[in-house]
Amino acid sequence: MDLAHSSSDIGATVTSREQDAVRILLLIDGACEPVSDAERALPGLAEAVGVVRTQVRIQKLDFWLRNPDYLADELLTEYEKSGEGPLLELAGSILDSEEPEVRRYPMLRHHFGAYEPLDDALAVLRSAGLVASRRRGTINRVRQHDYFLLAAGREVARKMIREAPVFQYYVERTRLVLALADGLGGSQLKKRQYLQREYAQAARGERIGSVSARARARLEKLRAQAVIHG
C-alpha cells in the first residue's frame, strides 16, 4: 500500500479507504491516552489499550499529518515564540524537501473547519477488531465519540511499523504533531488552525489550499535573521 505519493490539489480526493484506515490506526496508536478500569468494564472494551477522545481531535491532528506545509508553518510560529533552533531545523527539513507536495492530502473545508469523512476508514478498523468506538450523551444528542485502540490494533500497528519502514514516517510525524498540540483539545486545535488565512478563507465544500510557498518564504526570512543575530 503506497502512502508516499499524492496527486496535486486539482481533482478528487487522493486517498483510499484503506490508506485512510492505516493512517488513522497509526494516529490512534500514537495519540491515545490510557483507558480507565471503568471503561474496560464496558461491553466490548475488555481488550482496550488506549483511547482518543472526540472525533474533532482526531480530525484536527489528522489535518497536520495530511498537510506537512501547515505543520511546518506551525513549527515556524513556535520558533518565533521560543527561539529554539531545533524548531527552525525541523521546519526546514520539511520545507527543503518535496514532502509538502508528495505527502500532502488536502482536506475539505467544512462548516466546523477541516474535515474528511472517517466513517469508512473507521469501519475497516472496527470490522477487523482493531478499534472500537463509543458515543457519549443521550439518544437524541451525542456529545462526543471516543475511539478505543484494542490490543489487536496495537499489535497490527506495531507489526506494520516493523515490517514496512515507510509507515515509520507517520509514527514520527504523529509524535511531532502531538508535541505541537501539547494537550490542546479538539476545539482548541480548531481555533489554532483557523488562524491560517488559507484555512479560514477556504469556501465551504472546497479543498483547503497549500501554504507551502508562504511557509518557504517565511523560513528563508527567519534563517536570514538567525544568521544576523547568531
Rank of each mutant, 00 (worst) to 15 (best):
G50Q: 13
R223N: 13
L75W: 09
P117Y: 03
Q188D: 13
K221R: 14
L195T: 12
Q59G: 13
H5N: 08
F63L: 07
I58W: 04
E155C: 12
E39G: 11
V177I: 04
L61E: 15
Q168D: 07
R23K: 09
R218D: 13
K190R: 13
S6N: 04
A121C: 12
R154E: 04
F63R: 06
E99Y: 05
L149V: 13
T174H: 03
G209V: 08
T138W: 03
P165L: 01
D182N: 15
V14P: 09
L150V: 13
R66S: 11
D120L: 00
A226R: 15
E163V: 14
V177C: 00
R23G: 03
E172K: 12
L176I: 01
S7D: 14
A41D: 06
L149Y: 14
V166Q: 15
A181E: 12
G11V: 11
A202L: 11
V131E: 09
V227M: 05
G183C: 09
E220M: 01
R192N: 14
A215F: 04
A202S: 15
E74C: 11
R17Q: 09
L176V: 03
L3G: 14
L178I: 11
E89Y: 07
E99C: 01
E18R: 02
L118W: 09
H111I: 02
P43N: 03
M160P: 10
N140D: 15
F148L: 08
Y199N: 06
R57P: 08
I228Y: 08
E101Q: 10
D29Y: 13
D9H: 11
Q168S: 13
A123Q: 12
V166K: 02
Y115I: 04
G113S: 13
G183R: 08
V52T: 06
E78F: 14
I10Y: 05
V56R: 15
S36L: 00
I139N: 00
D182G: 02
N67D: 12
H110A: 13
R23A: 09
C32H: 14
V171K: 12
L88W: 01
E206Q: 10
S16E: 11
R192Y: 10
I139V: 03
E98P: 02
F148S: 08
D146K: 10
Q144S: 15
K60S: 05
L88V: 00
A152G: 07
R17N: 06
R40D: 12
L125N: 06
A128N: 10
R109E: 02
D37V: 03
D146E: 15
V56L: 14
L180F: 05
L61T: 10
D119S: 09
L26V: 06
G85N: 05
A224C: 01
I139D: 02
A217N: 14
Y194E: 13
E206C: 09
D62F: 03
A215T: 02
L184V: 04
P68A: 07
L219E: 00
A157L: 09
D20L: 07
L184A: 14
V171I: 07
D2W: 01
I58N: 04
G50P: 10
A132H: 07
R135L: 05
R192C: 11
S133K: 12
V56Y: 10
P43R: 03
S36G: 01
G44K: 05
R197C: 00
G205F: 01
L88R: 02
K191P: 00
E47G: 09
Y105C: 03
I208W: 10
G44W: 04
V102D: 06
S187I: 01
G30N: 13
A91Y: 07
Q168Y: 01
A152T: 10
